[in-house]
Computed example of a mutant assay.
Amino acid sequence: MQFDTPGGPVDIAITDLTVAGWTGRDRAAVDHHIAELAELGVAPPSQVPLYYRCGPELLTQSARIDVLGADSSGEAEPLLVMAEGKLWLGLGSDQTDRALEAHSVAHSKQVCPKPVARALWAFDEVADHLDQIELGSKILENGEWVSYQKGTLAAIRPLADLAQGGGLADGGAMLCGTLGAIGGVRPATRFRMRLADPVLNREITAEYEMRVLPVVA
Rank of each mutant, 00 (worst) to 15 (best):
E77Y: 11
Q61M: 12
P49W: 07
A102N: 07
R64A: 15
P9C: 06
S46N: 12
A20H: 08
A99I: 00
S72W: 02
G21D: 04
A29Y: 01
P44I: 11
A28M: 03
V67Y: 01
S73N: 13
V10D: 02
L40T: 04
L100G: 04
L59M: 10
L50R: 12
H32S: 04
Q61N: 09
I65G: 04
G90W: 11
W22R: 07
A28S: 14
G21M: 07
A106Y: 01
H33K: 06
W22N: 03
L68E: 13
P44W: 11
V19A: 12
E57N: 12
T23Y: 04
V105M: 04
P45R: 07
G7Y: 06
V10K: 06
A63D: 15
A83N: 15
L79S: 11
A76D: 02
W22H: 09
R27Y: 00
V105R: 01
V48M: 05
L87D: 06
L79D: 10
V19I: 15
D11P: 00
R98T: 01
A29G: 05
I12Q: 02
D97V: 06
W88V: 11
S104F: 08
A13G: 06
E84N: 15
D16N: 13
H107P: 00
L59P: 06
A35I: 00
E101Y: 03
I34L: 03
Q95M: 14
D94S: 14
Q95I: 12
Q47S: 14
Q47I: 08
E77L: 08
K86T: 15
S73T: 12
Q110I: 04
W22T: 08
V48P: 03
A76T: 13
L58W: 05
G90C: 08
G69R: 12
D16Y: 01
L40Y: 03
G85Q: 11
A28H: 10
G24F: 02
D31H: 06
E77C: 09
L89R: 10
E75P: 05
L79C: 11
H107E: 15
A43I: 02
M82P: 01
I34V: 15
I65Q: 03
P44V: 10
